[in-house]
């Protein structure tokens, strides 16, 4: 693989920002669930990378580098500030209620809400892989580079995500989905 400088100049920096800013924010938002904090983290990342552009040499793509850095920054934030993500808080409250999450999913008003809840139920790594593939259209190879895992793991986890989601949302998928899409159209 070829080694290259991350940004040749301001124009390529600007281009990378335009291409990836919103997607990186969405990715960090999924982990932190705080819009302001996630924008701060991604902006800080861009400023830092620009300042250090002459000492950053890439092995993979700019895209993978940015996703990986943003992911690390988000996880560091969780660690250092001991931030409880909304997902974590949700988990705790379900525990207190005696773990009725599956019921909650089946009683949700619509598929969208049920889907969000089911997503939060996925193990963190599995959810992240699914989200990067489904909502950011990253290829398996890019996901593997971003999370520093093997493409085979991406494949396994994608299968697992679909299986778990289908198990949790089974009733919706057979009944509600047609209605939902009819209503949306």
């Amino acid at each position: 693989m070829q080694t290259q400088v991350i940004f040749e100049d301001e124009a390529s920096y600007r281009q990378a920002f335009k291409l990836h800013y919103a997607a990186l924010c969405r990715m960090v938002y999924r982990i932190l669930r705080d819009k302001d904090v996630c924008e701060d983290i991604v902006q800080d990342l861009f400023v830092r990378v620009w300042e250090k552009r002459n000492s950053i040499y890439l092995q993979g793509s700019v895209k993978s580098y940015l996703y990986r850095s943003a992911m690390n920054a988000a996880l560091n934030h969780v660690q250092s500030k001991k931030v409880k993500t909304r997902a974590a808080i949700d988990d705790v409250s379900f525990e207190l209620q005696g773990g009725h999450l599956p019921d909650e999913i089946s009683q949700a008003d619509d598929l969208q809400t049920a889907f969000q809840k089911a997503l939060q139920e996925l193990p963190e790594g599995c959810r992240e892989i699914f989200m990067l593939s489904r909502y950011e259209q990253l290829s398996y190879k890019e996901i593997a580079e971003t999370l520093e895992i093997s493409p085979k793991t991406v494949e396994n986890q994608m299968g697992k995500a679909l299986r778990v989601l289908r198990e949790k949302l089974g009733s919706f998928l057979q009944t509600a989905i047609g209605l939902l899409f009819l209503l949306k159209l």
């Binding site: 919103a22 969405r26 924008e39």
Partner: peptide, 23 residues
């Protein structure tokens, strides 16, 4: 069908952000 479910929409103000991070 499951794949078609949209993600909850969150938007970010790219232009305002660019003003903060531009060189």
């Amino acid at each position: 069908d499951l794949w078609k479910v949209p993600e909850e929409a969150v938007t970010f103000d790219e232009d305002a952000a660019w003003m903060k991070v531009r060189p």
